[in-house]
Amino acid sequence: MYLLNSAACLTMLLLFYKLLLENETMHQFKRFYLLGSVFIALIIPFITFTTYVEASTDSLQQFSGSSVLISETDTSSKLN
């Protein structure tokens, strides 16, 4: 999974380079961009964002107060 994420990041950075920076004359900036994009593509897959959602007590009371109707069916089978 890490290799797929890293390859996707590197592909997007290379696409940005091909579309916008390839024809520019800033050779030193392009050199640092290409070297930096390799390091960025190696680091970005390690970054994860975690969000915690707290459950409100109102929604818990709503579900606990509702009644559930369960009907029993005859599941006995008769053999002849």
Rank of each mutant, 00 (worst) to 15 (best):
E24K: 08
S66H: 00
L34W: 00
Y17A: 03
N23I: 01
G36W: 05
A8V: 12
M1F: 11
R31E: 10
S6F: 02
Y17Q: 02
L42Q: 10
F39S: 10
I44T: 04
S76M: 10
L20A: 11
S56F: 09
T50I: 06
I44Q: 04
T51N: 11
L3D: 14
S76I: 01
F39G: 07
E22R: 15
A7C: 09
Y2Q: 06
I70W: 03
L20N: 11
L60Y: 14
E54D: 13
F46M: 06
F32S: 01
Y52D: 12
S66M: 13
T50P: 01
L10C: 06
H27M: 12
F63G: 03
S56N: 15
P45N: 11
K78A: 10
K30V: 05
T75R: 03
L21P: 05
E24N: 10
R31Y: 07
L35Q: 10
K30A: 15
M26K: 11
A41H: 03
N5Y: 08
R31Q: 08
P45D: 09
T50H: 10
C9A: 15
L42A: 13
E22S: 15
Y33R: 02
E22K: 15
L34R: 11
Q28I: 07
T25D: 14
V68W: 00
K18L: 13
D74I: 02
N5A: 10
Q28C: 08
Y33N: 00
G36H: 06
Y2L: 14
D58F: 10
S76G: 09
L15D: 14
I40L: 13
L79H: 05
Q28W: 04
S37Q: 00
F16N: 06
L15Y: 07
V38T: 00
L21E: 10
T50M: 04
T75Q: 06
K78T: 08
